[in-house]
């Protein structure tokens, strides 16, 4: 029934201790109840969000997903500017973060002297422990001025022809937000990549070495292909984190409610929308629309996280770092 092992049965010896089954049963009941509560919690989140966005779903229907206007004045709300903001900042962040994270993983597993591997890994884990509000704060006061005064003007003068860098470089824009997000997401991707690369059997590496491969060729031919699905899993995990980030982004993205037209445009993500507008004196329709956006975000990040866990779990078979 409940426990896989037999409970102590009364023996026929002189001193028979009657062990009541009730404490065990109560405990089991408690445990089951808690389990049910956890599942109920997950369901409740979806239910509450759906319930509260019901009005918006009714009023805007499918148009919610391709309209681009968000206007309090006209009470017209659509999700597109925020989905674009979310996906744009997250993808850009990955574009920056993945090479950096892979580089650190490769360095730690192949180049670094053994005594240095622990400390560097620890330092990267410390990066993961820094709260996102501090990243955002640092982003606002340290990164944003640097972006506005140095990086963005240079980008505009050299790569302005691509059309990606138009508009006045104020620094509070999609690009800066992506940079901060990248910094936040690197530790996650790096830790998973490091674990999967370290799990490559020595025999594979020796096979490459014995053919006369250089260090990089060994990494390229024997290690990276072997670790590929784990690394991809780590990247998707990082994507999941980036999609849901609020505080790191909210201070530097400019909080505009339109679709960004250049990397120097201000924008918003679904997370920042919820954080800035849910509590302000918004009418019920607006609140409902905000929560419908939240529903969209939750579904996207759910999908991404499930995919990531499946990939990472399959490769490392449950061992390795626990990523909270």
């Amino acid at each position: 029934m409940e426990s896989p092992t037999p409970s102590p049965s009364s023996s026929s010896s002189a001193k028979t201790r009657r062990v009541s089954p009730w404490p065990d049963r109560i405990f089991f009941g408690l445990v089951i109840a808690v389990g049910a509560f956890v599942i109920a919690l997950a369901v409740a989140i979806v239910v509450i969000l759906v319930y509260n966005s019901e009005q918006s779903i009714r009023v805007f229907g499918w148009g919610f997903f391709y309209g681009t206007e968000w206007s309090v004045q006209y009470q017209v709300f659509n999700v597109v500017p925020f989905v674009v903001g979310t996906l744009l900042t997250s993808s850009l962040a990955l574009l920056i973060a993945v090479p950096l994270a892979l580089g650190t993983a490769i360095f730690i597993t192949t180049q670094a002297p053994r005594w240095a591997r622990g400390p560097i890994g620890t330092a990267i884990e410390l990066l993961a422990a820094v709260p996102s509000v501090i990243y955002g704060f640092w982003g606002l006061y340290v990164v944003h001025p640097y972006m506005a005064q140095t990086v963005e003007p240079k980008l505009q003068s050299t790569l302005g022809w691509t059309g990606l860098f138009s508009g006045t470089p104020v620094g509070l824009d999609v690009l800066t937000a992506s940079v901060i997000l990248a910094v936040m997401v690197v530790p996650t991707i790096s830790a998973v990549s490091r674990d999967t690369l370290a799990a490559v059997p020595a025999a594979q590496k020796e096979a490459a070495l014995s053919l006369g491969a250089t260090d990089w060729e060994t990494t390229r031919i024997a290690m990276l292909p072997y670790a590929r699905s784990g690394i991809v899993g780590g990247v998707i995990l990082g994507l999941g984190r980036a999609l849901g980030e609020t505080m790191a982004v909210i201070m530097v993205i400019g909080n505009a409610e339109k679709v960004p037209t250049s990397l120097f445009s201000s924008g918003s993500t679904i997370s920042t929308l919820i954080a800035t507008q849910l509590l302000s004196n918004s009418g019920p329709l607006q609140i409902s629309a905000i929560l419908e956006c939240g529903l969209v975000l939750m579904l996207i990040s759910l999908l991404v996280n499930v995919a990531a866990r499946l990939l990472v779990w399959r490769v490392t078979k449950g061992a390795g770092t626990v990523l909270a």
């Binding site: 020796e206 096979a207 490459a208 014995s210 250089t214 031919i221």
Partner: peptide, 21 residues
């Protein structure tokens, strides 16, 4: 060593083909 290993090849106790290839 890279040059050396080109000229002196090795076969191991347990066959270790590149598994992804």
């Amino acid at each position: 060593p890279v040059r050396v290993r080109r000229r002196i090849g090795m076969v191991f106790q347990k066959a270790n083909p590149f598994v992804t290839m």
